[in-house]
Simulated assay, not measured.
Amino acid sequence: MSDPILSLNNVHTDIAQYHILQGVDLEVPKGQVTMLLGRNGVGKTTTLKTIMGQWTCKSGEISFDGQDMTQMAVSARARAGIGFVPEDMGIFADLTVEENMVLGATSGPMDPKRKEWLLNAFPALGTFWTSEAGNLSGGQKQMLSIARAMAEDRTLYLIDEPTKGLAPAIVSTMAQALRELKAQGASILLVEQNFSVAKALGDTAAVMDEGRVIWTGAMADLATDKDLQERLMGLSMEAH
């Protein structure tokens, strides 16, 4: 396993009166795809939002690329090289696809070669480049959300359930784009309920339950061990 680009050490997060994260320990190796798995409601989305700074870490430490960013502002984390794709997509419906992409390139104009790669990866975005994002289909909006996070080169991408509710053809397009992103040297922390996608993309995996990481290891080991899947998540990947 390579050195971690991101480390969480005993991270606790409260939301209102609820103690959601109860001592999360997690490492994301450089240049790899780490799958964050577990049943609904165990803290996966809260973990991503805590890493991004949208929820405040009550105690513990978050380290990114060797720097303590536990108390860093959201904008500073983005400038440091973290891209975030939320589950709700977070696109600007009244802006065009192009305008959404321009907002994603926070450090300046989008590199023409990167724009070309993204439009090759997500051809529908080129077709609707000047259309308002609110007029896109659900799958096209999800493509835009991911492409916007990729509008400039980032060190780490946090992606929350990108294939949820999407048609197989669109899932395949997204998976290929994420493979290409990894090939460029990016590190990815991916929450995903589609186990076929998790098996295809994941290098390592971390399984959460009740606000903690209860297992870490190679994604391939988890994908081939039905008993382990049942014990950790109460279900078999084979059935999904």
Rank of each mutant, 00 (worst) to 15 (best):
residue 3 D to W: 00
residue 3 D to A: 00
residue 5 I to E: 00
residue 6 L to Q: 00
residue 6 L to P: 01
residue 9 N to R: 14
residue 11 V to Y: 02
residue 16 A to N: 15
residue 18 Y to N: 10
residue 18 Y to L: 14
residue 19 H to M: 12
residue 20 I to L: 12
residue 21 L to K: 03
residue 24 V to L: 02
residue 24 V to D: 00
residue 26 L to V: 06
residue 28 V to K: 00
residue 29 P to D: 02
residue 29 P to W: 03
residue 31 G to D: 04
residue 31 G to P: 01
residue 31 G to W: 07
residue 34 T to H: 08
residue 37 L to C: 05
residue 41 G to P: 01
residue 42 V to W: 01
residue 48 L to S: 05
residue 50 T to H: 01
residue 51 I to S: 04
residue 54 Q to L: 13
residue 55 W to H: 11
residue 56 T to W: 08
residue 60 G to W: 08
residue 63 S to Q: 13
residue 65 D to S: 01
residue 68 D to T: 13
residue 80 A to Q: 09
residue 84 F to L: 01
residue 89 M to Q: 14
residue 92 F to P: 11
residue 100 N to M: 03
residue 101 M to V: 03
residue 101 M to F: 05
residue 110 M to C: 02
residue 116 E to W: 14
residue 116 E to G: 14
residue 117 W to P: 00
residue 117 W to F: 14
residue 119 L to K: 10
residue 122 F to I: 03
residue 122 F to A: 01
residue 124 A to I: 05
residue 128 F to Y: 08
residue 128 F to C: 07
residue 132 E to V: 09
residue 136 L to G: 10
residue 137 S to I: 09
residue 141 K to C: 01
residue 141 K to I: 10
residue 142 Q to C: 15
residue 144 L to N: 07
residue 144 L to T: 02
residue 145 S to W: 02
residue 150 M to I: 12
residue 151 A to V: 10
residue 151 A to M: 13
residue 153 D to F: 03
residue 153 D to Q: 13
residue 155 T to N: 04
residue 156 L to D: 00
residue 160 D to L: 12
residue 161 E to H: 01
residue 163 T to P: 09
residue 165 G to D: 02
residue 166 L to D: 04
residue 170 I to N: 00
residue 172 S to T: 10
residue 174 M to T: 05
residue 177 A to Q: 04
residue 179 R to Y: 15
residue 182 K to T: 02
residue 184 Q to R: 13
residue 186 A to Q: 06
residue 187 S to A: 15
residue 187 S to R: 04
residue 188 I to S: 05
residue 190 L to M: 13
residue 192 E to M: 05
residue 196 S to F: 11
residue 198 A to N: 08
residue 201 L to R: 06
residue 202 G to W: 01
residue 204 T to P: 10
residue 206 A to L: 08
residue 208 M to T: 01
residue 208 M to A: 06
residue 209 D to L: 14
residue 209 D to E: 12
residue 210 E to L: 14
residue 210 E to I: 13
residue 211 G to D: 11
residue 216 T to I: 14
residue 216 T to K: 14
residue 219 M to T: 09
residue 219 M to E: 04
residue 220 A to Q: 15
residue 226 K to I: 14
residue 227 D to T: 06
residue 228 L to S: 15
residue 229 Q to E: 07
residue 230 E to C: 13
residue 232 L to I: 04
residue 234 G to I: 03
residue 236 S to K: 11
residue 238 E to M: 15
residue 238 E to N: 10
residue 239 A to H: 10
residue 239 A to D: 09
residue 240 H to N: 15
